[in-house]
Design a protein around this nucleic acid. Structure first.
Length: 803
RNA sequence: GCCGCGGUGGCGGAACUGGUAGACGCGCUGGACUUAAAAUCCAGUGAUAGCGAUAUCGUGGGAGUUCGAUUCUCCCCCGCGGCACCA
């Protein structure tokens, strides 16, 4: 019986002492940078989901090491965050204490399943030596004009008492605590991610990422190309600028709509005749929650502005102006031209308020067949000189025409908003800015970093938009570094996403005191060759960190514009009952328990065997038993007679097929099929009485990415010296993969009637003769005309007969 | 609504550029070992009919292309994920 407890411990100790996974200084070897998302060290401990990602990166890293690469594979802690802070509030203890305890527990748990991380490079985002550089990067962004302060309506979570980025609001609720998010006007720090919107889209093209992640990111950034058109307000100099992607429908515009929060209203104010009615409406809107406002099913409402008319510059027609909350102030210009005949929303609104609907696009040329709303492209009607053109033609002609006259501008809009970057909480990186009444926002000097998070008495957020740091007068009140006058520190902290936006750079040179990482090392190791992680980061972390990397690249700090060459995401592991694992259901699988019952190798192998890596699958105790059987059977090979005698041809054939398939499958992240091939090989070997020593060695190597402890033990039993991971991946021989005999399928009119065993590469004439003599075939073709014979070497013979 | 992915035995899932559907694992059935059980080992296992050789059906449904379709084309149904009043 395989004693996993003893053997796993033995090799884990060996790896620690041997520093087996330390990145080598050897420059002759090509680098390979494997990365897995570093965990937030929660109080709940390691989840099997973490194990899945960390095992996958480990399989890949070990494989690449054996393939001769100098592999960088490390681990760290994304340790700022709300749970630690909430713990601190409740227990009146520093969140760092709780965080350290959790980190220690996570480290122990991760080490207990034996992944090959270079622990000498471990990082922790809450360590001042780390966040010094997070702050430094902020200052670079500030210097580049990419970090700015602005008073704006922001997403505010009343329960977490902090502002949130757009990416942290899901269905109008706080991603963390599910409270309804409110809009609050506050002066806040933003990062100008929108400057990179275009690059963030186009550079996706060259990345080896799953298509669905690319589309998700594109959708999130939401590029749309169109034009801005100026409508002038009758009897005034005021212009209302609208954004549209469908300038081809301009002649169907029967009114203009302004968002309730739009600043244009102030300009128009002196002309408005129904101010009371408008104010009443605005008041009503204000009281609606964001969720209510964006509910698609809600009735559209609005109010006509009396006394003011807008003029369509294309035909000089006068149209009415409305304010309505179906138009968003935050997108485009905050105003739209309404074309009810060709836009669903405008159509709905026009129906409700009985407004004119004017058809200008038809599906078929010159035929007005539209009864309701037609939103597709088509041919123009009633559009003066543009009549008869198709939509796309009309769009470019109209833009040219309008640009010539000065009332149209080509414009690209993005849904992506700037990243709200300040949080009114304690447990985050302090923003390294001093606010001086005469000099404005003054950045700290590099030599003043890290700006260490000070001790406070009370970790509770004030709720009034100030972080707990604001209460420490001695920390807040400083002299302005520029003018020497009285000044105050910025008291907001950075969001949790900050530390994780660049951690992959720090692994490369984690102890560097002078730079975030040396240029030389960055050049050597960037980009990350393969990045494993979870689906929840498709549009948040992945987008933020690409942005930071791009900004740093523009500053000449990072040598590559895209940080992650290849991205692989894993599917969830559900509980045995098919539900999500949760304390509430009491169905959580704790890796500690699995390891003590079955061993680390069995857990790793099982998780990799559960199904396709990207798929969701449910934990099955019976399944893990099967893997346990497999591991014991592998061990039983050592009880056979180990010889130097050569293996038989069939064995070599299967062995070499396995070498080929396991290598290819690991490369393609098809771990479960790699393992099934290893099972096929084992099933073949299990019935033998004697077994070749070298064959055991090769088998151990093929298994080693999945079951490193077992493989080390086998390797050393077979006389290997040192770690198996310092050896090399076996090569396969094409000759040995070829089968000597092959089975050929014989089909008659497409139906399988017989299989013939023949020599490899047998000729058509030979196989046809053989088939014609087969009783099973004779039965079907006797007395029939053969119309056609299709022969594919080593595969099949298809005979077509006349019925 | 839009975009993306998927639907294969009792279950997880295999199947290369169209070429023997169901690899591998689980489960189940029978047998060996055992006083017995567990563990282990051996054999079987898509459905239907047949003692069997074998035949027919079979990859969500319907049509099509083809000697041949899980794979390609069109239509439809269902499930999952993302986005969603973005003009």
């Amino acid at each position: 019986m395989y004693n996993f407890k003893e053997i796993e411990k033995k090799w884990q100790d060996f790896w620690d002492k041997d520093e087996t996974y330390k990145v080598e200084e050897d420059d002759s070897k090509e680098k390979f940078y494997t990365l897995v998302e570093f965990p937030y060290p929660s109080g709940a401990g390691l989840h099997v989901g973490h194990v899945k990602g960390q095992t996958a990166v480990d399989v890949f890293a070990r494989f690449k090491r054996l393939k001769g690469y100098n592999v960088l594979n490390s681990m760290g802690w994304d340790a700022f965050g709300l749970p630690a802070e909430n713990f601190a509030i409740k227990n009146k203890k520093h969140p760092g204490i709780f965080t350290q305890e959790n980190i220690n527990n996570f480290r122990r748990q991760i080490k207990s399943f034996g992944p090959s991380f270079d622990w000498s490079r471990e990082i922790d985002t809450t360590d001042p030596n780390y966040y010094k550089w997070t702050q430094w990067i902020f200052l670079q962004l500030f210097e580049m004009g990419l970090a700015y302060e602005k008073e704006a309506p922001i997403n505010w979570c009343p329960s977490c008492k902090t502002g949130l980025a757009n990416e942290e609001v899901v269905d109008g609720k706080c991603e963390r605590c599910d409270s309804l998010v409110e809009q609050k006007n506050m002066k806040q720090w933003f990062l100008k991610i929108t400057d990179y919107a275009e690059e963030l889209i186009t550079d996706l093209n060259d990345l080896n990422w799953p298509e669905y992640i690319k589309t998700s990111q594109k959708n999130w950034i939401g590029k749309s190309e169109g034009a801005e058109i100026d409508f002038s307000v009758k009897d005034s100099d005021i212009k209302i600028r609208v954004f549209t992607t469908r300038i081809d429908t301009i002649f169907g515009c029967t009114y203009v709509v302004i968002a309730p929060e739009s600043k244009i209203l102030l300009q128009l104010e002196y002309k408005i005749e129904n101010k009371d009615e408008l104010n009443e409406y605005l008041e009503k809107i204000k009281n609606k929650s964001d969720l209510e406002r964006t509910d698609l099913n809600k009735d559209k409402s609005g109010v006509k502005i009396e006394g003011v008319k807008a003029i369509n510059p294309f035909n000089n027609e006068e149209v009415d102006i409305f304010i309505a909350d179906y138009v968003l102030a935050s997108y485009g210009t905050g105003a739209v031209m309404a074309v009810p005949a060709h836009d669903e929303r405008d159509f709905e609104f026009a129906k409700k308020y009985d407004l004119e609907i004017k058809t200008v696009i038809t599906k078929e040329k010159d035929i007005d067949n539209s009864i309701s709303c037609y939103t597709e492209d088509g041919h123009l009607l009633n559009s003066l000189e543009f009549t008869g053109m198709n939509s796309s033609q009309a769009r470019s002609r109209m833009i040219e025409f309008g640009e010539g006259k000065g009332f149209v501008q080509r414009k690209i809009n993005y849904k992506l908003r700037d990243w709200l970057f300040s949080r009114q909480r304690y447990w985050g990186e302090p923003i390294p800015i001093i606010k001086c009444s005469s000099c404005g926002n003054v950045p700290l000097e590099k030599s003043d970093l890290p700006l260490v998070l000070p001790e406070v008495e009370n970790y509770e957020p004030s709720g009034n938009g100030e972080s707990p740091l604001a209460n420490i007068d001695s920390w807040v009140n400083v002299k302005c570094p520029k003018c020497g006058g009285d000044a105050k520190r910025e008291t907001n902290t950075m969001p949790q996403w900050a530390g994780s936006s660049w951690y992959f750079l720090r692994y490369i040179d984690p102890k560097n005191q002078e730079e975030l990482a040396s240029a030389e090392n960055l050049k050597k190791f960037m980009p990350v060759d393969i990045y494993f992680g979870g689906a929840e980061h498709t549009t948040v972390h992945l987008l933020y960190s690409r942005f930071w990397n791009k900004a740093l690249c523009n500053k000449g700090i990072v040598p590559v514009s895209e940080p992650y060459k290849r991205r692989v995401q894993h599917g969830l592991i559900l509980a045995e009952d098919g539900r999500k694992m949760s304390k509430r259901w009491g169905n959580v699988i704790n890796p500690d328990d699995v390891i003590s019952e079955y061993g680390a190798d069995v857990m790793r192998l099982y998780i990799m065997f559960m199904g396709p890596y990207g798929d969701t699958s449910a934990w099955a105790t019976s399944g893990i038993n099967g893997i346990s059987r497999f591991v014991n059977k592998v061990w039983n090979l050592t009880e056979k007679e180990i010889t130097e005698d050569e293996s038989d041809k069939e064995t070599l054939n299967i062995l070499h097929k396995t070498i080929k398939k396991v290598g290819e499958d690991i490369e393609n992240i098809s771990f479960h099929t790699a393992i099934s091939q290893l099972m096929i090989l084992l099933n073949h070997l299990s019935v033998k009485e004697k077994i070749n020593k070298e064959l055991v060695n090769i088998f151990a190597k093929l298994l080693s990415p999945f079951t490193p402890h077992l493989s080390e033990e086998l390797f050393s039993l077979m006389g290997g010296i040192g770690s198996i991971f310092k050896s090399s991946w076996p090569e396969y021989s094409e000759d040995l993969i070829k089968d000597e005999k092959v089975k050929i399928a014989v089909q008659i009119n497409g139906k399988l009637r017989d299989t013939l065993e023949v020599d490899f590469d047998s000729e058509e004439s030979f196989v046809v003769e053989l088939a014609k003599n087969s009783e099973l075939v004779k039965r079907w073709i006797e007395g029939k005309d053969i119309i056609k014979i299709i022969f594919i070497k080593n595969k099949l013979l298809s005979i077509v007969i006349k019925q």
